[in-house]
């Protein structure tokens, strides 16, 4: 079971590039803007622009290209499906008729399929760039700060982010424990091979003790947090200060104006 052995969380790739040093809030906001822009525009020229922009970001993040592109691989079937569906099911100018089942390939179908696929690729690449250049902790910091205006509407933003942090903290611990439980089961003759039904069945004796122990851990953790004066977000200070630098303002300004221009035209 590969998922049990890989306990590096997220895919943060440490570095000191321009993109790495940007405030996580800037990155998060920019990505949101990019995604909106990608979803509202159909013009091929915009997509070409975005492709160039994405390449520029990859270059300035000093990440190995293969590492970034690897994120696209799990979605390849989705691109094929997208192209396939569009190519054959969009009515329009006929390019070619397949002899089998008389499937028709149209010009409009081909372009639409390509546009949708390129969009998907760009969305995935941009999301990957965010997680590759920003550690999970920076992301939760950014989230807490960006969501904090919602506190006025009694949204428990601190608590939500605390839950995120605790999950990040405990995923490796629980994975370790799952591995231990699995080894214990295997050493007593349990098998995790076979067809899907068998494999799901064999997971049950793993999940159950894992759940029980997770609850016990939660109990202990609550006591430990209480003991260290945790009372929720009220009156809490923060170890990390997020400060916008001039680069952040520039990036945000550029991103927001381009989004505006896109929406207007």
């Amino acid at each position: 079971m590969a998922f049990l052995t890989d306990i590096s969380l997220g895919q943060y790739y440490p570095g000191d590039s321009f993109v790495h040093r940007l405030d996580p809030r800037t990155k998060l906001l920019s990505i949101l803007c990019f995604m909106t822009a990608l979803l509202i525009s159909f013009e091929p020229i915009v997509l070409i622009g975005f492709s160039i922009l994405t390449l520029v970001i990859i270059a300035s993040s000093q990440l190995p290209l293969a590492l970034v592109l690897r994120n696209v691989r799990p979605f390849i079937w989705l691109f094929f499906l997208t192209i396939f569906v569009h190519v054959f099911l969009t009515p329009g100018r006929l390019l070619y008729t397949m002899p089998l089942m008389s499937l028709k390939i149209t010009y409009e179908g081909l372009t639409l399929g390509l546009i949708y696929s390129v969009r998907l690729v760009l969305l995935i690449l941009l999301a990957a760039l965010l997680t590759l250049t920003t550690s999970p902790i920076e992301l939760t910091d950014a989230l807490e700060r960006m969501l904090s205006p919602l506190k006025r509407f009694k949204v428990p933003t601190h608590e939500v982010v605390m839950m995120l942090t605790l999950s990040l903290r405990f995923i490796p611990t629980l994975l370790e424990e799952a591995q231990r439980l699995k080894n214990a089961q295997v050493s007593r003759g349990a098998s995790f091979e076979g067809n899907v039904v068998q494999r799901i069945r064999s997971i049950v004796p793993l999940i159950l003790p894992l759940f029980i122990s997770a609850f016990r851990r939660a109990d202990d953790l609550a006591l430990a947090m209480d003991s260290r004066c945790y009372t929720g977000g009220e009156g809490r200070t923060s170890f990390r200060k997020l400060v916008f630098k001039s680069a952040d303002y520039l990036v945000l300004l550029a991103v927001l104006t381009s989004l505006m221009l896109l929406i207007i035209f």
């Binding site: 990040l168 903290r169 430990a224």
Partner: peptide, 24 residues
């Protein structure tokens, strides 16, 4: 394992201080 709250060592040490509202 069950009393460590934070995702890095330095933040773990800061956790109690954050709760007490200690200055940066």
């Amino acid at each position: 394992d069950n009393q460590i709250v934070s995702t890095t060592v330095e933040r773990e040490i800061a956790f109690g201080l954050e709760n007490l509202g200690t200055t940066y």
